[in-house]
Nucleic acid binder design. Structure first.
Lengths: 231, 231
DNA sequence: ACAATAGTGTCTGTGAGACAGTATCGA
DNA sequence: TCGATACTGTCTCACAGACACTATTGT
């Protein structure tokens, strides 16, 4: 009977497919850890110690294991490569060109994380790569070598930040627990890449924050109130 | 010397990893082909003929081959499962829970395509599954069984359509070459899930379209002009 | 003439953008 | 008092929302 044949065929197909006889791409996650430091948007990078792309900048990444979800692999990568736990992250996009890694077929799922710079303690990753904070807009505007398709991934993340800054409160993930409005506005201006008007900015964020009872002090000008994010 | 050891170690790691000894997830694409028919948003589905989820609705999908990009696999899936070529599509999101498919570990990259209903000619797919057009909002509002995590994928696509309809001209991909403004408005209303004001709608789309020199005829009311999308 | 749908003119409210002004610190 | 930065009041203008009106067909 045709029906039984079909079931059998599917089972055979699956057995063959999932067996080692059937070649599969590797699955990895590449991670963009963004922060703001010295008035610039930065991203955690590693410098390639081996060929291919030896000496180029690259993004930290890990392979997705068989017993962890892709999200969990991203979390693990953020922990192993940047030493960070419990920070905001989201999936960006999946990059699947055949030759994006000349060594082997790798499909890579890009994630981005946002973290206040105070939390970052760069340390040597498990694979002994030295991690750095790289100026995002500078590297994208330059011709400097970036490994694999990681320039495209960084552009993708940069664009996601810009658009979500306009429509969501994602920017607060880059702020410390307490912050002044001039500090917050500066971060928004960095993410959006343009100056904002103080009065208008304050109107827009007013409903997102709650004031604390203390202020800056010691500066030769009017003190600034500290606020908290009203999640 | 430590440096040489490290290079060697990486090479060993890669050889081991890319060899068949190292288990990898399978990589698939799942495809949402959306269209508008009879005043409703519909999606191309198949009905599962085998366990698991026998009898449930499912999305068409294909495995990603070693020598095709993920985008190309999506294109192939759209061609093989829905018989469509050269239509608008975009990557949606990647689903990577460990147990999303009980048979084996599959990481699935979801794509959505938009096509005017005139182009759709449902036919039996390569794997003899019967394809249907399913009412999206109806199925999402019901408790009907949907295979794997495909309900979540459909929700993801539904939401993407809604948000991109507001900010882009994506809706035109659902229109035939020529269309009237009442027809276009109806499609926008379906995608957005709410009624729009005629005058305001026309102002908004005015710059996106160019008029043709012909009109509807035969109806017992004022004729309507046909327009084209000004890409 | 009438029903039915296509298409237009215009008022209003909201909110972003712009700017000018006031407030409060240290020196 | 002055320089510097924090903070606020308010005008304007563009645009979405709302509604009322006119236009053109077949019966």
């Amino acid at each position: 009977m045709a029906k039984k044949d079909k079931i059998k065929a599917e089972q055979e197909f699956l057995k063959t497919y999932s067996s080692e006889a059937f070649e599969k791409p590797s699955v990895a996650v590449d991670i963009l850890v963004f922060t703001v430091e010295d008035g610039r948007l930065k991203v955690v990078t590693v410098r390639r110690q081996e060929y291919p792309f030896k000496g180029d900048l690259a993004l930290p990444g890990v392979f997705v294991g068989m017993s962890e979800s892709v999200d969990d692999a991203a979390k693990r990568g953020i922990r192993e490569e940047a030493g960070l736990e419990d920070i905001y992250f989201e999936q960006l996009y999946t990059f699947g060109e055949v030759d994006r890694d000349p060594r082997m077929r790798v499909v890579s799922i890009a994630y981005m994380a946002l973290v206040p710079v105070e939390k970052i303690h760069l340390r040597t990753g498990l694979r002994s790569e030295k991690t750095e904070l790289t100026d995002v807009d500078e590297i994208l505007g330059s011709k400097e070598g970036i490994a694999f398709d990681h320039r495209q991934i960084i552009e993708c993340g940069r664009e996601r930040i810009r658009s979500k800054t306009e429509t969501t409160s994602i920017a607060f993930n880059l702020m410390p627990e307490e912050f002044t409005l001039p500090e917050l506005q500066k971060v928004y201006e960095i993410l959006l890449g343009k100056k904002l008007y103080k009065a208008n900015f304050r109107k827009k964020v007013a409903e997102l924050i709650s004031e604390t009872d203390h202020m800056t002090s010691g500066d030769a000008h009017r003190p600034s109130r500290y606020y908290k994010f009203k999640g």
